[in-house]
Design a protein around this nucleic acid. Structure first.
Lengths: 340, 340
DNA sequence: ACGTTTTATGTTAGCGATAACAGTCTTCGC
DNA sequence: GCGAAGACTGTTATCGCTAACATAAAACGT
């Protein structure tokens, strides 16, 4: 496999390396390296010659070698739970785009479970591949713990992972979002608002529930139900809720569950929004076409992702801010809510 | 935490390297390397000592160094267009899981556009980071071209990228899926079936359209409409279609568009399924809770992703098969279709 | 003109790991 | 009991690149 002593220059057998380019251009390897990394330090003339050689040989720098000597890899990692869910998927996508603009590649590590262990393990997997930094998208209580004892030398940024984090973080202000959703229903004249929450220990679920509670202060607060984010769980809990004739308004913690819930109500003969108003959360692209079109709370995942990347970039160049940024969600009123 | 072995100088300043571990364990670096890569070649006793040293120093192998010498990186790349769409997201997720089981990490490169250029560029981005192989998820006509002139040394597998590909590929048999969907409607007594297709030049869209055409042989084939996969486009085209009273059955190329279309029909006073039957495609998790619950064609993205990874693994160990595997979709009958 | 800076390129020395070969030290056959 | 095979462990020699220093050539000031 090695270039045996053959007197002829080995053709396209092995990928060209720096030395080959240097030879062809009649310069030293170092000069080639400079052309690639700091072109302004090389005379235009030489540069052109080198570039031509690069072109001719189809040379591509060996990433591992460069990484070995510079200590940077140009890759950043994203640890996420279920990249199939709308939120994480959108965030990931935004991160990837932001990263690309800065010439970073993105490595993903999705988690089997959301436990302290598995988060640490995910970060570790990435770290072994020497990523330059990690963004963690784990909207679960366990995130805070999982991030507690990380190697301090690895820049980490969290997305949507709760309050008391030891690292820079970006999050959507779900409390505010929930308050807006709930107030909207109250302002329509409903005496109280029921709540279908997300699964226990999910940060988003908790924050939204707290926001709902907060907005309901001074009123009767009905016991919340919990789903698992799926339309199916919304349907199941919806069937239960639809048996209670006093229910006139429901704030559902995400859109798919709202969809399921509305179906259950409809099947039970309760019209939305005439008999009961429903507000969702997320504003998935389909929400505007649910039946009826869903009033919901829009999260700007693109901004979230971009901000996360920015924060990570800051951390990577040294700024040791433990900054925490917040993205405001927005209520989108459509036709699933109406005056009492 | 760290061992409280006081008095030791220069702790936790630099990450430990092989040599450090070797020193602590009283062996050579090579032996440490062996313990990590071929434990059976080291006496249990020594192995234990080394492992203890690894533990104590919190040693992690330097990926770049290893990669430089072995020529393998343990990373594979996925080139995809829009990882926000249900299909690609699910496929990506499945690939990631399969990869993890085999200790591979996944690098993603999403594309700005689907052109030959941009695909080549995406593969290139990944290649520069020396991925061991690439899976391309680009369900567009341009994929075939984009994959034509790839470096032959890089293992590449395609997912859902059309017929005449120069690389191993996995794909869902959309033709069959569309035939099933269309036949289902015909069997329910509809004279013909209208079609709302995906955007031009998307492989899936074309295949489904062809399947639909095929199933309609010998009958009047109404001119198909085209959307852009979004619920919104389904709504717009639905409005148009709902004005034609002769329409009694529609096969829609994906579920979100079907959702939008059903909304349009409903708003136009045409009941689904009493007046018009609708079949979607994808079976997104929400489809069962649309109103009415959507009859659709289920694609098994998990299988698709797993197979893609398998194929890539084969190619990476040398098997130069240009194998092409097919995954069969399945019709799921729910309540959006009924007898004429 | 001359030393001094500036600019352009070359040299040397690793980065941290593993492959390949080279020793030791056992173990074993007869 | 002694050479040979085997089991472990150690010694180089890279892998491809870039930091840091060294050198040669050009530009500059007075």
């Amino acid at each position: 496999m090695t270039t045996s002593s053959g007197g002829e220059p080995a053709e396209r057998t092995k990928a060209a390396v720096l030395e080959d380019v240097a030879g062809l251009a009649g310069v030293s390897a170092m000069t080639v390296s400079r052309v690639l990394n700091a072109p302004e330090k090389v005379r235009p003339e030489t540069r052109a010659r080198v570039l031509a050689a690069v072109q001719e040989l189809g040379y591509r720098p060996n990433f591992a070698a460069r990484s070995l000597v510079t200590g940077r890899s140009g890759v950043l990692g994203v640890v996420s739970f279920d990249t199939t869910l709308y939120g994480p998927a959108s965030t990931l996508y935004a991160i990837e785009r932001a990263a690309r603009e800065h010439d970073y590649l993105v490595n993903i590590a999705s988690l089997e479970a959301m436990t302290r262990r598995s988060i640490a393990e995910g970060v570790d997997r990435l770290r072994q591949q020497s990523v330059d930094g990690v963004i963690v998208i784990v909207p679960h209580e366990s995130a805070a713990d999982g991030l507690r004892d990380l190697p301090p030398d690895l820049p980490v940024v969290d997305v949507g992972g709760g309050e008391r984090l030891s690292v820079p973080a970006v999050a959507v202000d779900h409390h505010a979002g929930a308050v807006r959703a709930t107030r909207h229903l109250l302002e329509l004249g409903h005496d109280t608002v029921h709540h279908l929450s997300g699964p226990a220990n999910w940060i988003d679920a908790n924050n939204r529930m707290q926001g709902w509670r907060h907005a309901l202060r001074g009123r009767e607060i009905p016991p919340p139900l919990a789903g698992d984010w799926s339309a199916n769980s919304g349907y199941e809990q919806g069937k239960r809720l639809s048996r209670d004739p006093s229910v006139t308004a429901v704030f559902v913690a995400n859109d798919p569950m709202a969809l399921g819930l509305m179906r259950a109500f409809r099947e039970a003969g309760r019209r939305v929004p005439e008999d009961v108003s429903v507000v969702g959360y997320d504003d998935v692209p389909e929400a505007a076409h649910f039946w009826p079109p869903l009033t919901t709370v829009r999260q700007n995942f693109a901004t979230l992702g971009r901000q996360a990347f920015q924060l990570l970039l800051n951390r990577m160049v040294g700024h040791d801010t433990s900054e925490r940024r917040t993205v405001e969600p927005e209520l989108v009123v459509r036709e699933s809510t109406s005056r009492r």
